[in-house]
Simulated scan of single mutants.
Amino acid sequence: MALRDALFRPVRAGNAFEETVERLVQAIRLGVVAPGERLPAERELAGRLGISRVTLREAIKSLQDNGYVESRRGRYGGTFVNAELPAAQPVGRISGEELADALTLRAVLETGAAECAAGRALGPGERRELGARLAECAQAGRADYRRKDSRLHLAIAEAAGSPSLTAAVADARMRVNELLDRIPLLPPNLAHSNEQHELVVSHILHGDADAARRAMAEHLDGTASLLRGFLA
């Protein structure tokens, strides 16, 4: 629930509609609300985002028109994420400076998140959440690997105990995912990433902050190398 709170935080009044669309797409693309799952009830979601229900309905209607969600009526109705999501739109040409900026921001945020998570006394629920997300990612197929991978990294950020950090990691991850969508999924890399994920989570659960930071840094370096190789 804390992760949804971090993403479904109040939007700024000046661009309420646009930011609402951004938050909802972010939650869907990052797997916080998975395909087939229902978005929070309208009253609850509007309250979390600090917007009117009219603005929320307009945002949801836009997502529905573009294939992200569907509305169902009846006792068990609501707004549900579609099983098949629209293909991500490719970003334009990226410069070396833009790529370096995105990768640097991610490295600073995510290595810090792993270190902070390992330095906290995690409760049973937090430890189960990390284990569950790790298992999901390890078992994911190529079609949903990116979403499961994102969800694991967000769970690590969430374990750091700072909603602001979780929100920042989510923003950075969306930026990096736009780049990852432009390069192929390589099975040997996925296998290696899963091994690294296991090491990072193990260090977090054992409370070794330095090792968790180093393991996350090594993991992110691998992804950065692929992005530089394909896009730079």
Results as ranks from 00 to 15, higher is better:
224 A>Q: 05
127 R>P: 12
176 V>A: 09
163 P>Y: 07
68 Y>C: 07
228 R>C: 06
207 G>Q: 15
37 E>D: 15
42 E>L: 12
15 N>H: 10
82 N>P: 02
151 R>L: 15
27 A>R: 02
73 R>V: 11
11 V>P: 01
96 G>N: 14
122 L>W: 15
170 A>K: 14
28 I>D: 06
142 R>A: 15
97 E>L: 14
76 Y>F: 11
98 E>Q: 15
139 Q>A: 15
222 G>V: 09
229 G>W: 10
110 E>G: 04
46 A>T: 11
72 R>F: 00
210 D>N: 09
34 A>I: 03
202 S>R: 14
49 L>F: 05
36 G>M: 11
133 R>I: 00
16 A>Y: 00
130 L>S: 04
76 Y>N: 13
143 A>M: 08
148 K>D: 01
141 G>N: 15
132 A>T: 15
101 D>G: 03
52 S>I: 04
143 A>G: 03
123 G>L: 04
51 I>W: 08
110 E>C: 02
228 R>S: 05
65 D>I: 02
1 M>G: 10
14 G>P: 00
55 T>Q: 06
176 V>Y: 10
31 G>M: 03
169 V>S: 09
162 S>W: 00
117 A>G: 06
222 G>A: 08
113 A>N: 04
153 H>K: 06
207 G>F: 10
186 L>N: 06
38 R>D: 00
145 Y>P: 05
49 L>Q: 09
134 L>N: 03
52 S>K: 11
177 N>P: 05
1 M>V: 14
167 A>W: 00
162 S>A: 13
132 A>M: 06
75 R>G: 03
49 L>N: 08
66 N>G: 11
225 S>H: 11
120 R>P: 02
168 A>T: 03
58 E>W: 01
55 T>G: 08
34 A>D: 15
20 T>G: 11
208 D>W: 05
3 L>C: 02
39 L>T: 10
14 G>T: 03
54 V>N: 10
78 G>I: 12
10 P>H: 11
146 R>W: 04
92 G>A: 05
108 V>W: 00
149 D>E: 14
87 A>C: 02
184 P>Y: 05
55 T>N: 12
185 L>V: 11
29 R>A: 15
144 D>L: 08
26 Q>C: 11
200 V>Q: 01
185 L>T: 10
130 L>I: 01
117 A>M: 11
207 G>C: 14
120 R>Q: 13
31 G>R: 04
4 R>K: 13
18 E>I: 04
194 N>F: 10
58 E>V: 03
179 L>T: 12
167 A>M: 09
8 F>G: 12
86 P>M: 05
29 R>I: 08
67 G>D: 12
197 H>R: 13
